[in-house]
Amino acid sequence: MTIVVQLFGPLRERLGLDETPLALPDGATARDALAAFVAAHSEAADYYDAKTGRTPLMLIVDGERVALDAALADGAALLLVSPMAGG
């Protein structure tokens, strides 16, 4: 299946990327998507620690905050919101 990863906040600026398609196995979770995304974008490595599963990102699907173990559907848009302190 294929989802779309959308970026919001400093991570978007760091990668110079608004959104990108991401191919995943059927039944993949948000954690799988985040791991695959970070593997494909090494500049995002500090946004996900595969060993501990920790991430500062807020994960949103269809306007709802989701946990890392949430299952994703084909065509889903996964919005990754990074913490911001700009004023």
Binding site: R14, D46, T55, P56, L57, M58, S82, P83, M84
Partner: peptide, 20 residues
């Protein structure tokens, strides 16, 4: 609750006056 971890925040950050 919203952001348990500050993440990769860095200064300076880009800012256009109209957005702020």
């Amino acid at each position: 609750c919203a952001f348990p971890d500050d993440g990769g925040w860095e200064e300076p950050f880009p800012v256009l006056g109209a957005v702020a």
